[in-house]
């Protein structure tokens, strides 16, 4: 029969995992949800960050979460440049639908294969001082290797939400998501705003990469299963709803972790993608969002 302690543990670590999924999805919620740039290479960028962080931290003992904060601006700049290219070659030509999608797919392959060529196909991880430690809440354990990334994710998401609500640029990003022409009246250049926002989304991928490498070992293809997860979360949340993205990610983490506990981990990739298929078939406007079909 079902052991309640086992289930409680599965739910709690599912929530912690959900925080990781939230930070992994948040960048895509900005690029796909708000800017309508379908960056399917987002998970690959996250894994790229994980590998870079592993290369920096494994020999030096530097903390991966701090390292993530340090490389995030670099990723942000690269992302901004990438958006400029995307805009120049696809958005402006009206070729997003096919060529643009193919572009990001190609980018994903190139990132993955480059990782294989540079780092080999083996798993990479980082030893941290808190790797083996755990907080106990009665019979439920909170391993620090999951708790700390979860807290960092939540802090970054809170900062992102504040920025979108309070700052001028942040509000302009939100306005771009609603109506591109509205910005012209504000005297803001939509392309510049989208460049900033896309850069930010890639910076978030870097932070997610730092969290990921603390939670689990990573290999070049770790991004694949995340494609299903993050797309499911973003679409389930209703494109562009950031609080919705957080809730959907938590729900998702719990469902996936409980499934893995009950049926075995071999089934967990199918959970993500089956849920994604179900969402697309039944409720493409998501739980919280506007119709976008």
């Amino acid at each position: 029969m079902l052991d309640p302690v086992l289930i409680a543990n599965a739910v709690v670590s599912g929530l912690l995992l959900g925080c990781l999924y939230a930070i992994a999805s948040m960048g895509l919620a900005v690029s796909f949800g708000m800017l309508d740039v379908v960056n399917i290479a987002h998970p690959a960028m996250m894994v790229l960050a994980s590998c870079v962080i592993a290369a920096l931290c494994a020999p030096t003992g530097f903390d991966p979460l701090l390292a993530a904060l340090l490389i995030a601006p670099v990723f942000g700049l690269l992302g901004a440049g990438l958006y400029r290219l995307y805009h120049l070659y696809f958005e402006r030509r009206g070729d997003e639908a096919m060529q643009g999608l193919a572009f990001f797919f190609g980018l994903m392959i190139v990132i993955e294969v480059s990782l294989v060529l540079v780092y080999g196909a083996d798993q990479r991880w980082v030893e941290t001082g808190y790797g083996g430690l755990s907080l106990g809440l009665g019979p439920v354990g909170l391993p620090l290797r999951m708790l700390l990334p979860a807290l960092m994710s939540l802090a970054c998401i809170a900062a992102l939400l504040l920025w979108l609500r309070r700052s001028f640029t942040g509000r302009a990003v939100a306005a771009v998501a609603q109506d591109r022409d509205a910005l012209r009246f504000l005297g803001a250049d939509p392309i510049r705003i989208k460049t900033v926002a896309f850069g930010l989304s890639v910076a978030l991928a870097a932070i997610a990469g730092g969290c990921l490498i603390v939670v689990q070992p990573v290999d070049a293809h770790s991004g694949h299963v995340f494609i299903g997860r993050v797309l499911a979360v973003v679409i389930l949340a209703g494109l562009g709803s950031l609080p919705g993205t957080l809730v959907a990610a938590l729900v998702f983490g719990v469902i996936e972790n409980v499934t893995a506990t009950l049926f075995g981990p071999a089934w967990s990739p199918a959970v993500a993608f089956s849920l994604l298929l179900a969402v697309l078939a039944l409720r493409p406007q998501g739980m919280f969002g506007r119709a976008h079909a």
Partner: peptide
């Protein structure tokens, strides 16, 4: 039938998932 009513990008995303779901089925 599941996804072609939607905007094209959702169809693309759904086909991406199809491979993983089928592969998991076969693996198990």
């Amino acid at each position: 039938w599941l996804t072609l009513r939607l905007r094209g990008v959702y169809f693309s995303i759904a086909t991406l998932s199809l491979a993983v779901v089928l592969q998991t089925l076969v693996v198990n």
